[in-house]
Simulated assay, not measured.
Amino acid sequence: MSLQSMARIALARTRIGSAMRRLPLVEPVYIRHAANRRDNTGLQWGIYSSYGEAFASIPKRRPGGWDHEAAAGMWVDYVAPVRPSTYPILFWLRMLLQPDVRLVDLGGSIGLTYYAYRKFDALPEGLSWRVVEVPHISAQGREVAVREAATGLSFESDLARAGACDILLAAGALQYMERSIPGVLEDLGSRPRYILVNKVALSQKPEFFTLSNYGPGIAPYRIFNEACFLEYFRQAGYVIRDRWIVNDMACDIPFYPEHTVAEFAGFCFERTAS
């Protein structure tokens, strides 16, 4: 483990971080350093009560959110190693994908999960895989789809226009969305039989936001209250078919160890009520 990683863990997961926060200028100096990084380090900072408050705190010199060319350019060459956290999703997709199934991939970038699945298994005949993304990333996704002859893959920038689906996939986007839980099922307008959620940060604390530097830009990052998150799906008629730990991801918030989330979660929900 590098000295930088050890320092980050000490600040984000131990009482050292809380003590350092009380020292003048220490936290502002760290925030300036973290906000200036451009190397996709995934650094987080700050505690905010709302998406709007977090967004307003993004330095003006950096692009905010995900809808800009710099973010879309992350996937000009989409080929990348499949992370361990992706395998539970690939497992459930292999179980659930059938001919003529309609899947909506919320926040699926340029179709990264589509290409990961296609790498390991054949896509069913008649599969409709629709990615819902911000306009800049959707445009990049369409270009890559033509280049890669991605049959059945399409893009939409409005969840309300995505159409009915059998499977809703959200593999790491819910925490970046201004309106997500609640809101996703209401905006989709239908109740798919299955919902696959991956890489979500859950906490026992009331919901809060931090800021995340993902390299080309900075975005508000939501940490959900676990009880409220699960109750949303229960109220919509879903039960948990599977739950897994995503231990290759964490939300380390320096100076706020009581808010740090050391591991993420994934779920397969199935609808049992009309």
Rank of each mutant, 00 (worst) to 15 (best):
A54D: 03
D187K: 08
S18V: 02
A150D: 01
V82C: 14
R241S: 02
Q4V: 15
A164I: 05
S128V: 04
I167L: 09
R271N: 15
W75S: 04
A70K: 12
P135Q: 08
A265Y: 10
L127V: 06
S49N: 13
Q175I: 01
N247C: 01
W66Y: 15
F267W: 15
R142N: 04
R62D: 03
R61D: 12
A19Q: 09
L159Q: 06
F120G: 04
P257I: 07
R130K: 14
R161M: 05
T151W: 03
L202D: 11
D39H: 11
A56F: 00
V104R: 06
F264P: 03
T210F: 04
P63F: 03
A80C: 09
Q4D: 12
Q140S: 10
I9Y: 13
Y194M: 04
M74H: 04
G65K: 07
G215H: 00
A7I: 15
C228R: 10
G237T: 01
T260S: 15
L23N: 05
V239D: 12
V200P: 00
R32W: 11
I89F: 02
L153H: 01
V131D: 00
R241D: 02
L106P: 00
F55N: 05
P59I: 09
P192E: 02
K119T: 04
V146P: 01
I218Y: 07
T151L: 13
T86V: 12
Y214Q: 05
W75A: 03
V104K: 09
L3I: 14
D121Q: 10
D121A: 15
V197I: 15
F267P: 11
G172Y: 06
L230E: 10
D158C: 08
